[in-house]
Design a protein around this nucleic acid. Structure first.
Lengths: 190, 190
DNA sequence: ATCCTTTTTTACCATTTGTTAAATGTGCTT
DNA sequence: AAGCACATTTAACAAATGGTAAAAAAGGAT
């Protein structure tokens, strides 16, 4: 049930079986279906998800009021709205399932218990999520300097598995262009 | 000399004078002039800067080979290339002074000494820099969903002081548009 | 003040992207 | 299989942006 999560952590640090038992005590498992909403914009985010299977998307409303995908998270990635989670403030973004999948749910209360019992876990998870922030920011910055066609080609290189599993509309909003533009770009690439 | 840095930290946590003496022991002060390069792309970043006066810019080469500004950092903000700083790998971005200014320099070696002596300092600085990452990523994401004119208007709202202190070329590259486009947008706004 | 360099503004045209609308395709339900 | 809802593709036109080049403006140095 929780192997994928534990196995992922073990990639970074050897964790004794006793600790694993403690960790699994506080985890929850959840199946999600496409377009299921895991967190609404405006709510305080009190959970951190770990994707075992499928793809999650972080979404927000843009200036014109339409939903835009900020990020896609796939297997072995954490997904939360950290600004909300850390500071107990309403989230500006929401979390949705981009396709059917399975998650590990880390409730904030339970995670804090784990951090008390196993302080190294806090360091580890913080390091992982911080690193993923740095990766995300690097990608988003580079997109701003590219035209739509280049953005799409780089998206295919950077996240080929995502490209196959989420809708064209999702990808277009993620790249900051319209569906029609993306469809046109796809045609030109063929 | 170092008051601005210490005063800033005190906003978050009360720090006894003894600790302040320890901290100041490890700090360095540096004056910079406009366009001075503080870190070249490709180098490993071994320092963290704290801006006392002026504006720094984080730059990177885009697909076409021209320099793009990823971020501007002003008074009371930390500036480093964390991916390089944390992981001892060459930086993809560079750091330059966008105008004359004064900095506190925190060398990695000395910072690690401070973290040993005052563990709460590590938590504090990590929290501050993580929060600023979240803020930056939020802004960059929203820019991707806006057209150039909206981006500029939101830039003026979000960072009015920066707008007055850096060149049009810097702002244009930050917003992912050409100087000419930005100049045209400015005209339309008047 | 003058010259020189750099930045900013303009203008023109090519290209890209957005908008609107319709057509086509795809999968699901009955 | 037929029908329906939804996603994707196309098309035609409008609007925005980029590329190039040149003029104007602003600063600095002498």
């Amino acid at each position: 049930m929780f192997e994928c999560f534990v196995n992922y952590l073990k990639l970074f640090k050897n964790i004794p079986q006793g600790d694993i038992d403690i960790i699994e005590e506080e985890l929850e498992h959840r199946k999600v279906t496409e377009d299921e909403i895991l967190l609404n914009e405006g709510q305080v985010c009190k959970e951190m998800f770990f994707v075992c299977k499928g793809v999650l998307r972080i979404v927000a409303l843009n200036e014109k009021g339409s939903k835009m995908a900020y990020f896609f998270l796939k297997e072995n990635q954490f997904c939360s709205i950290l600004n909300s989670f850390n500071n107990n403030i309403p989230a500006i973004e929401g979390i949705e399932a981009a396709c059917d999948g399975e998650l590990i749910v880390l409730k904030k209360q339970k995670l804090l218990i784990l951090y008390e019992k196993l302080p190294y876990l806090k360091e580890l998870i913080t390091a992982i999520t911080t690193q993923s922030l740095l990766d995300k920011i690097q990608v988003r910055n580079s997109y701003l300097g590219e035209d739509a066609s280049t953005r799409y080609r780089n998206f295919l290189i950077r996240q080929p598995e995502i490209a196959l599993r989420v809708s064209l509309g999702d990808i277009a909003s993620y790249l900051g262009i319209t569906q029609q533009s993306l469809s046109r770009i796809r045609k030109n690439i063929r």
